[in-house]
């Protein structure tokens, strides 16, 4: 259970460039919920994730995870319970280390055996089994440097790393946006199955409105640092992409200006059209 109460964050406070990125976010997320988050550029989606992950502390508001107030818990401490994947496949792993070493680091999360061998035989077998589930033949390339993998492969391994110990909360920040459409669909499918299998509470930012409505159980729309729409259940099931765009126009008095969002929907139609 994650609770956000009145979160506020302002960048460059008291300057002419002052920007109120979060303007009072209130949100309750039940265990096992899979929430998708959409919104135009600069709506505060990534800022919200940064706030929850602890990249910075908010000026106002509380963050409560499983009844524990983590508002002022530092980022690396929160990381024991909160996993995060970024849009840039390069961000989530160390390119100079091997696949096995990267997974070993993620596996060390929460374990306090600093001086145990990172790649014991027992761990290597475990990593091999996990990698085999990705169906990318990576289990036979465990000593390959991460930097030599493709973006899709890296993002798949990052997903494995983020969930090797089941996190209390999984934050996905457009984690398929930098991949080509087919790979993106594959990584998204992997994400859906892992999240469902282990019932992980998940927040996923996406610019793909189709995916936002078809993935998970609840959809949030953000605009100017606020949550302007919270869809779930029957209302959400009945909502189509044009409906959602219309709602946005009505609420904000302008069209959804995320160019990538529109481009991607066209691409998706192409992909689906050719299938």
């Amino acid at each position: 259970m994650l609770e956000l109460k009145g979160l506020e964050k302002t960048y460059l406070k008291h300057t002419v460039n002052e920007h109120r990125a979060l303007r009072g976010i209130d949100l309750q997320i039940a265990d096992g919920e899979f929430i998708t988050v959409i919104g135009s550029n600069g709506a505060g989606k990534s800022t919200l994730f940064n706030a929850v992950a602890g990249t910075f502390f908010c000026e106002r508001g509380r963050i409560v995870l499983d009844g524990r107030d983590i508002t002022y818990v530092r980022e690396h401490r929160r990381a024991r319970q909160i996993s995060r994947i970024f849009q840039d496949p390069m961000k989530g792993s160390a390119p100079g280390l091997t696949i096995a070493e990267n997974i070993a680091l993620a596996y060390a999360r929460g374990e306090n055996h600093l001086f145990s061998f990172a790649l014991s035989r027992r761990k290597l077998e475990l990593f091999r089994d996990c990698l085999a589930q990705l169906n990318m033949d990576l289990e036979n390339r465990m000593n390959t440097r991460m930097g030599l993998l493709s973006g899709g492969q890296r993002q798949a391994v990052t997903l494995l790393m983020a969930t090797i110990h089941t996190p209390r909360l999984l934050l996905l920040d457009e984690h398929t946006a930098a991949l080509d459409p087919l790979t993106a669909e594959r990584v998204l499918e992997m994400t859906r199955s892992i999240v469902a299998e282990r019932n992980i509470t998940t927040l996923m930012i996406t610019h793909n409105i189709n995916a936002a409505l078809s993935t998970g159980s609840r959809t949030l729309m953000m605009e100017q640092g606020q949550i302007i729409l919270d869809l779930e259940g029957g209302t959400r099931d009945a909502m189509s992409v044009p409906d959602l765009l219309a709602v946005y126009r009505e609420k904000c008095g302008k069209a959804l200006d995320n160019d990538r969002m529109l481009l991607d929907n066209e691409q998706n139609m192409d992909v689906h059209g050719s299938e």
Binding site: R78, K91, S93, A94, L97, A104, L105, A108, R109, L114
Partner: peptide, 26 residues
């Protein structure tokens, strides 16, 4: 450098952000 601690040093020199995300105090 084969232990978890040693690996943390190598990874910090390689991608600090990722190490912090693995709940390690860089």
């Amino acid at each position: 450098f084969k232990t978890v601690a040693g690996l943390c040093i190598q990874a910090t020199g390689n991608n600090e952000e990722m190490v912090r995300a693995s709940s390690i105090n860089t």
